[in-house]
Computed example of a mutant assay.
Amino acid sequence: MITIDRTTDPRVLRTAFSCFPTGVAALCAEVDGELIGMAASSFTCVSLDPALVSVCIQNESRTWSRLAQARRLGVSVLGADQGAIVRTISSREGDRFAGTEPMLLDGGAVVLRGAPLWLECSLWNTMQIGDHLLAVFEVHGADAEPDRDPLVFHASAFRVLEGRV
Protein backbone atom coordinates (compact mmCIF):
# COMPACT_ATOMS: atom_id res chain seq x y z
CA MET A 1 0.00 0.00 0.00
CA ILE A 2 1.34 3.40 -1.03
CA THR A 3 0.48 6.40 1.10
CA ILE A 4 -1.06 9.13 -1.03
CA ASP A 5 -0.42 12.73 -0.06
CA ARG A 6 0.42 15.98 -1.84
CA THR A 7 4.03 14.85 -2.42
CA THR A 8 3.03 11.65 -4.25
CA ASP A 9 4.03 11.53 -7.92
CA PRO A 10 0.77 12.16 -9.85
CA ARG A 11 1.62 9.26 -12.19
CA VAL A 12 1.23 6.83 -9.28
CA LEU A 13 -2.26 8.08 -8.55
CA ARG A 14 -3.17 8.18 -12.26
CA THR A 15 -2.13 4.51 -12.56
CA ALA A 16 -4.21 3.59 -9.52
CA PHE A 17 -7.29 5.47 -10.77
CA SER A 18 -6.91 3.87 -14.22
CA CYS A 19 -7.89 0.51 -12.68
CA PHE A 20 -11.49 1.74 -12.64
CA PRO A 21 -13.02 1.47 -16.14
CA THR A 22 -15.19 4.32 -17.36
CA GLY A 23 -17.20 5.13 -20.42
CA VAL A 24 -16.04 7.83 -22.81
CA ALA A 25 -18.21 10.82 -23.65
CA ALA A 26 -17.91 13.65 -26.14
CA LEU A 27 -19.26 17.05 -25.09
CA CYS A 28 -20.18 19.12 -28.14
CA ALA A 29 -22.04 22.27 -29.08
CA GLU A 30 -22.29 24.95 -31.70
CA VAL A 31 -21.13 28.32 -30.33
CA ASP A 32 -21.22 31.41 -32.56
CA GLY A 33 -21.49 29.20 -35.65
CA GLU A 34 -18.50 27.02 -34.72
CA LEU A 35 -18.61 23.36 -33.73
CA ILE A 36 -16.76 22.84 -30.45
CA GLY A 37 -16.10 19.49 -28.81
CA MET A 38 -14.04 17.70 -26.21
CA ALA A 39 -13.78 14.21 -24.74
CA ALA A 40 -14.29 13.23 -21.11
CA SER A 41 -13.75 9.86 -19.48
CA SER A 42 -15.26 10.94 -16.18
CA PHE A 43 -18.90 10.98 -17.30
CA THR A 44 -21.27 9.94 -14.50
CA CYS A 45 -25.02 9.69 -14.06
CA VAL A 46 -25.90 11.73 -10.97
CA SER A 47 -29.67 11.91 -10.46
CA LEU A 48 -32.95 10.74 -11.97
CA ASP A 49 -35.07 13.53 -10.47
CA PRO A 50 -34.00 15.97 -11.68
CA ALA A 51 -32.19 14.22 -14.52
CA LEU A 52 -28.51 15.15 -13.98
CA VAL A 53 -25.16 13.92 -15.28
CA SER A 54 -21.64 15.16 -14.58
CA VAL A 55 -18.14 15.30 -16.02
CA CYS A 56 -14.82 16.46 -14.61
CA ILE A 57 -12.84 18.91 -16.72
CA GLN A 58 -9.18 19.78 -16.29
CA ASN A 59 -8.65 23.34 -15.07
CA GLU A 60 -6.27 23.97 -18.00
CA SER A 61 -8.91 23.14 -20.62
CA ARG A 62 -9.15 25.91 -23.20
CA THR A 63 -12.07 24.18 -24.87
CA TRP A 64 -14.30 24.20 -21.79
CA SER A 65 -14.39 28.01 -21.55
CA ARG A 66 -15.88 28.07 -25.05
CA LEU A 67 -18.26 25.13 -24.53
CA ALA A 68 -19.54 26.63 -21.26
CA GLN A 69 -21.02 29.51 -23.30
CA ALA A 70 -23.44 27.17 -25.08
CA ARG A 71 -27.10 27.26 -24.10
CA ARG A 72 -27.32 23.50 -24.77
CA LEU A 73 -24.58 20.87 -25.04
CA GLY A 74 -24.71 17.42 -26.51
CA VAL A 75 -23.21 14.54 -24.56
CA SER A 76 -22.50 11.52 -26.76
CA VAL A 77 -21.41 8.38 -24.92
CA LEU A 78 -19.17 6.77 -27.51
CA GLY A 79 -19.53 3.25 -28.87
CA ALA A 80 -17.01 0.44 -29.21
CA ASP A 81 -16.46 1.29 -32.88
CA GLN A 82 -15.75 4.98 -32.18
CA GLY A 83 -12.20 4.79 -30.77
CA ALA A 84 -10.79 6.94 -33.56
CA ILE A 85 -13.38 9.63 -32.84
CA VAL A 86 -12.24 10.10 -29.25
CA ARG A 87 -8.67 10.69 -30.40
CA THR A 88 -9.80 13.23 -33.00
CA ILE A 89 -12.16 15.14 -30.71
CA SER A 90 -9.47 15.22 -27.98
CA SER A 91 -6.77 16.62 -30.25
CA ARG A 92 -5.39 20.06 -29.49
CA GLU A 93 -4.98 20.95 -33.16
CA GLY A 94 -6.81 20.37 -36.42
CA ASP A 95 -10.46 19.61 -37.10
CA ARG A 96 -11.86 17.88 -34.01
CA PHE A 97 -14.86 16.69 -36.02
CA ALA A 98 -12.93 15.08 -38.90
CA GLY A 99 -14.31 11.58 -39.52
CA THR A 100 -17.35 12.16 -37.30
CA GLU A 101 -20.98 12.65 -38.19
CA PRO A 102 -22.09 15.56 -36.00
CA MET A 103 -25.79 16.30 -35.78
CA LEU A 104 -26.92 19.77 -34.67
CA LEU A 105 -30.01 19.74 -32.45
CA ASP A 106 -32.44 22.68 -32.35
CA GLY A 107 -31.04 24.22 -29.15
CA GLY A 108 -27.41 24.25 -30.34
CA ALA A 109 -26.35 20.95 -28.82
CA VAL A 110 -24.28 18.73 -31.10
CA VAL A 111 -24.38 14.93 -30.85
CA LEU A 112 -22.33 12.36 -32.74
CA ARG A 113 -24.11 9.84 -34.94
CA GLY A 114 -23.42 6.22 -34.06
CA ALA A 115 -23.09 6.83 -30.31
CA PRO A 116 -25.10 4.43 -28.11
CA LEU A 117 -26.36 7.37 -26.01
CA TRP A 118 -27.07 11.00 -26.83
CA LEU A 119 -28.10 13.54 -24.25
CA GLU A 120 -29.18 17.13 -24.81
CA CYS A 121 -28.12 19.08 -21.72
CA SER A 122 -27.69 22.50 -20.18
CA LEU A 123 -25.15 23.47 -17.56
CA TRP A 124 -26.79 23.15 -14.14
CA ASN A 125 -23.91 23.82 -11.75
CA THR A 126 -20.12 23.75 -11.42
CA MET A 127 -17.76 23.26 -8.51
CA GLN A 128 -14.02 23.73 -8.41
CA ILE A 129 -12.47 20.54 -7.02
CA GLY A 130 -8.68 20.25 -6.91
CA ASP A 131 -7.17 20.37 -10.39
CA HIS A 132 -10.56 19.81 -12.07
CA LEU A 133 -13.91 21.51 -12.45
CA LEU A 134 -16.93 19.32 -11.71
CA ALA A 135 -19.64 20.27 -14.21
CA VAL A 136 -23.19 19.05 -13.62
CA PHE A 137 -25.65 19.11 -16.50
CA GLU A 138 -29.43 18.89 -16.56
CA VAL A 139 -30.69 16.44 -19.19
CA HIS A 140 -33.47 17.77 -21.44
CA GLY A 141 -33.55 15.00 -24.05
CA ALA A 142 -32.10 11.55 -24.64
CA ASP A 143 -31.82 8.91 -27.32
CA ALA A 144 -30.36 5.52 -26.43
CA GLU A 145 -29.44 2.28 -28.17
CA PRO A 146 -28.68 -0.02 -25.19
CA ASP A 147 -27.72 -2.98 -27.39
CA ARG A 148 -24.73 -1.09 -28.83
CA ASP A 149 -21.48 -1.76 -26.97
CA PRO A 150 -19.73 1.21 -25.35
CA LEU A 151 -16.15 2.36 -25.68
CA VAL A 152 -14.36 1.91 -22.35
CA PHE A 153 -11.32 3.68 -20.92
CA HIS A 154 -9.32 1.35 -18.65
CA ALA A 155 -5.63 1.21 -17.66
CA SER A 156 -4.97 4.32 -19.76
CA ALA A 157 -6.22 2.67 -22.96
CA PHE A 158 -9.47 2.55 -24.93
CA ARG A 159 -11.05 -0.90 -24.85
CA VAL A 160 -14.23 -2.75 -25.76
CA LEU A 161 -16.25 -5.07 -23.55
CA GLU A 162 -15.94 -8.82 -24.02
CA GLY A 163 -19.08 -10.88 -23.44
CA ARG A 164 -21.57 -10.65 -20.57
CA VAL A 165 -21.48 -11.95 -17.03
Rank of each mutant, 00 (worst) to 15 (best):
G79W: 00
G74A: 09
R72S: 02
R113A: 14
R72D: 03
D106F: 04
V152C: 05
L123G: 05
L48V: 00
V160D: 07
G79R: 00
V77Y: 00
E120T: 01
P21V: 01
V139G: 04
F137M: 10
S18W: 03
F17T: 10
T22R: 11
E60F: 04
N59E: 15
G108P: 08
D143W: 11
T7I: 07
D5S: 11
I4H: 04
S47L: 13
A144D: 08
A68I: 15
E120A: 11
P50N: 14
V165L: 07
G94Q: 07
A68T: 15
D147F: 07
G37C: 01
P116D: 08
W118T: 03
E60D: 10
A109I: 04
R11F: 11
T7V: 10
S91A: 07
P10V: 04
Q58T: 15
A70E: 06
F158H: 06
E138C: 00
P150Y: 01
W124P: 00
L151F: 05
A98S: 05
T88P: 13
A68S: 11
D5N: 09
V46D: 12
A51Y: 07
I4V: 14
G141Y: 01
R96I: 12
L119N: 01
G114F: 08
M38N: 04
R62P: 14
V160L: 10
V111T: 03
T63M: 04
H154C: 00
D5G: 03
L123R: 04
H154E: 01
R159G: 02
D143F: 08
G99N: 06
E162L: 14
N125P: 03
E120I: 02
V165A: 06
V55Q: 01
P10K: 00
R6M: 14
N59C: 13
E162M: 15
V139N: 06
S65N: 11
Q58N: 15
H140N: 07
G99W: 05
A80R: 03
D5F: 10
A109S: 09
D106Q: 05
H132M: 03
R113P: 13
A98Y: 02
P10N: 00
G99K: 14
L151K: 09
A68G: 12
L104T: 13
L104I: 12
F17K: 09
T22C: 10
R96F: 02
R87C: 11
R159N: 04
F20D: 00
R113T: 07
A68N: 08
D143M: 13
C19N: 08
L52M: 10
H140I: 13
V77H: 00
G130F: 00
P102G: 13
R72V: 02
V46S: 10
V139K: 09
L123S: 05
D131E: 12
R6Y: 14
D81L: 12
V75T: 06
T100L: 08
